[in-house]
Amino acid sequence: MSYENRYSDELGQDPVLKKKTARRKKQELYQKTAFLLIKLSAAAAILTLIIIIGDIVLKGYPAVTIEFLTRMPVNQMTEGGILPCVIGTVELILLSLLTAVPLGVIAAVYMTEYAADGKIKCAVEEAVNTLAGTPSVIFGLFGMALFIKYIGLPQSLLTASLTMGLLIMPVIIRTTQEALLAVPKEYREASRALGATKWETIRCVILPAAYSGLITGIIISVGRAAGETAPILFTGAVYYYPKLPDSVFSPFMALSYHLYVLATESMNIELTRSLQYGTALVLLAIVFSMNLIAAGVRRHYKKKLSSN
């Protein structure tokens, strides 16, 4: 008998070692199962995304022609293009960002940099969290009640953008707050030690260092502003408007609402199937390209700020 065999025989008979080996095997099994589950859920998420996007791209691709993008809808929206919806959606996104980003950033700066820890700050933070989780239809109704019934604005692009701005503001506030909190304390100290005031420190050091987090907030907001239908339903988006919006006070068509109308309320739902897919594809493309721009800006800042 060789030395090795004898050794392994002895090992095999040792009860303590046997127990240890069994335990280790059990642990390995656990680990493998856990990894498998994690991989499966990741795969499920990616697969769902691929199926949805793939379906829309495949079925919508033939419908998207230059004419589709540059013409008005005709023949009771069963033919023609979606130009007013594209313009309406892009304007809606930009205008709601224009209202929500400055206000949201200022609120976040106040809450992280100026407000003293206490009940009021805590209450405001809870309020922001609750707002972020409030269903969009509530925002729509609130926007209608406040801007249209109370203030007396018309059903228009402006009103819809203000309402949408309210909806995305909590997201902007929260992401900005997190970005500001992630700026290392050392930067603040260094700036103050050079004789900078608190505001100079925030403006010149902290906000620039937080840009990339801020842009993440904007990316999330763009997706919501483009997709949410309830907030604009009561405040400005219309079933059919034969002109391009000529001012912020005119009603407008939006891709999300147009899609809803085509899919549920049009004269002939089957007939417009390809138009529906085309509209969905264009909506996706708009959100995606805006995110791409934002990600590009974020990368530019990261590159400028740090070594990698």
Binding site: Y187, E189, A190, L194, A196, T197, C204, P208
Partner: peptide, 30 residues
């Protein structure tokens, strides 16, 4: 004004996330 007269260098090097030039120019600028 006091902190301008009494400068400080910290334990952990803490340059701002800006370029080398901007780091130095920051103090005089403000």
């Amino acid at each position: 004004g006091l902190r301008k007269r009494v400068g400080m260098v910290f334990q952990k090097a803490n340059p701002f996330p800006m370029s080398i030039y901007e780091n130095i120019a920051y103090g005089p600028k403000i």
